[in-house]
Design a protein around this nucleic acid. Structure first.
Lengths: 359, 359
DNA sequence: TTGAAAGCGCTAACAT
DNA sequence: ATGTTAGCGCTTTCAA
């Protein structure tokens, strides 16, 4: 006799501790009920801690013990089938898991969802319309509570048709569609904040290197810049606004032209441009922040926090966008009347700006 | 008579096109069956395109039409309840949505999962053990087909207990646990490849700036460096190996010491160090790649592709890790006998290395 | 305080 | 070729 029987007759193979062998059939409510000598209704009642029905302490314990002993886990599928709606929230993203920092949208959404007992079902679609439709269909089939439709950069979007079959909220994008709730970053306030960092350090002649490609961010960040200037009584000067492709190369290339402007400070459309600008400026023999102050936008950690000197910038609130999207979906947060809800972009000050020495 | 009745009696409210109003009850299989004048079994048969049972073309069409008209969508929960296993794959990650490039693991997993008809259920746990347990429990309750347990950097890990209740694969991490399947990047090959980029450009005196913190990457990348050298008949010189904290500041700080070594090329533990090293080298008046060649590791896009000059490096195959994890989970790919399966790290050549001028 | 039973939407024998 | 029926695991009246 080499092998040993176990009394219960449950197959207890050697592979039980690995994940390769046959997994045992999951324990059901009914089995718990039998083991505890009660009805399934009773077990259901104690599992769900229903306040209404009062269960005898003694019974409750018997059930709890049986649950523990058998290692029972509720079958969420059965629960959902009965209730009609799952504890899922779908997140369809065009490139969010691909793109460096926008993954924070997932993170924020998942934390907030979790807080309310929901799990995230995600689909990365690369903007592929067909994939999107399939993803949404699948979410619908799994009876998600609602769908977050998000984009990796702030922009207008067309709603995929099946989205309307579900409760949904747009995240980091918006649509003309009436009744479509949306959360987006407050680009204008962000632009204002970025400019104010410079302003409060005494800078008056501030250049802005904007992006060449059209986007809400392009308009909003410029608008904020103007507002901040105006609030300080500085007349907006068109000549101080440059445009370049919004990446490192664009920023690098803008250095020469920037120098001609006689500005003591620059505000860049984004951190990547600032990174390129650092190189360009350095090649011209200028030092940051002594010769010229620089602020960016986005707060792209890998870059901004580790440039020399570390870059002062404004955060894109991706985490908050995801979280707010979930709250709005669950009806925990009122959408703004007509326009998308704007999320605040906080300022992050590091060492790329120094007080301007009095002339 | 202004409004129009629709024959079916379905409520067709004005809010139907928005997502705020009451959503109509989803259409069921039974309703389709009634509309088409057939049994539910028949509808099920055509919906699932069962090859076995032959349905009359005419009937098939009636059913299909009814489906289209009513806008029927199968209830995946009911399907799962019957079949016992859902089309979900769970992905629990310690920080993957948070961290810049490892989001690619999600991406790869989701593409591969999708390809086989599975959806991804993700949970970001920040390494919080309790959260992990809850996340896994929830996945178990939703009857996931299996779980991918992943970490944002390659390391050893302890398995959370409930993981064993499911089929699982470790991604970017590994465990001593027997029978635990795992996929990890091939750090040694990566280190070899990085060094070979330099070697094939004629460099013989190659420094390596390793990380100070212990990790499989630290050992593997060094090991690969040694192997590559050895293959070229170059004796490994301990003095050529520096150590620094693996970020920009660490790389910057290593510049001085590096210069004393008289190397014509450096291989950095990662791209972030290389980024810092660029600054340090530049301050010492050296130019890359003319005075010294540099290669990194990780291929962190935002950095490597946009440094001046763009950095030659070796990719961490995050996308592939996710995809391979899924394939292994689904039994489409055989795990290597005992050790974790190693994924190839491809080389990405840009402009930070130039052929060494003959002395 | 607890149990019996119906039914959520679907699939899969088994009949016809 | 298609219909009948019995569950899948759970929640929820309604009775007892």
């Amino acid at each position: 006799m080499i092998s040993q029987e176990n009394g219960s007759g449950t197959p207890m193979s050697a592979a039980a501790s690995t994940n390769q062998g046959q997994r045992p059939q999951p324990v059901t409510l009914r089995q718990v009920a039998e083991a505890a000598g009660v009805s399934t209704a009773t077990v259901s009642l104690v599992v769900n801690k229903k306040k209404s029905a009062r269960i005898a302490e003694e019974t409750r314990h018997r059930v709890l013990d049986a649950i523990r002993e058998l290692g029972y886990r509720p079958n969420a599928m059965a629960q959902t089938l009965v209730s009609g709606s799952s504890r899922f929230i779908g997140l369809v993203a065009d490139a969010i898991a691909t793109t460096p920092f926008a993954g924070q949208i997932i993170h924020g959404a998942q934390d907030e969802a979790w807080k309310h007992g929901f799990a995230l079902l995600i689909a990365n679609t690369e903007g592929n319309r067909e994939l999107e439709t399939d993803a949404i269909a699948m979410m619908l089939e799994y009876k998600v509570r609602g769908i977050l439709y998000s984009t990796w950069f702030h922009r207008a979007t067309e709603l995929p048709a099946p989205l309307r079959e579900s409760d949904f909220v747009l995240v980091n994008c918006f649509s003309a569609e009436p009744g479509a709730r949306a959360v987006v970053p407050d680009e204008i306030q962000g632009g204002r904040s970025a400019t104010e960092i410079l302003l409060k350090h005494g800078h008056r002649r501030i250049a802005f290197i904007n992006a060449t490609i059209p986007a809400p961010a392009k308009d909003g960040r410029l608008q904020g810049y103007k507002e901040a200037l105006e609030a300080e009584g500085i007349t907006f000067d068109d000549g101080l606004v440059l445009e370049a492709y919004p990446d490192q190369e664009g920023g690098y290339g803008a250095a020469q032209e920037l120098l001609k402007l006689g500005a003591t400070a620059v505000y860049c459309y984004n951190d990547r441009m600032a990174m390129g600008l650092y190189d360009g400026l350095r090649e011209q023999g200028l030092s940051i922040p002594d010769d010229i102050a620089v602020v960016g936008f986005d707060n792209q950690e890998v870059i901004a926090a580790h440039l020399r000197p570390p870059l002062s910038t404004v955060s894109l609130p991706h985490y908050e966008l995801g979280a707010a999207g979930v709250r709005m979906l669950l009806g925990l947060e009122e959408p703004q009347a007509t326009a998308p809800t704007k999320i605040y972009c906080p300022t992050v000050e590091r060492n790329s700006v120094r007080a301007l020495a009095p002339a």
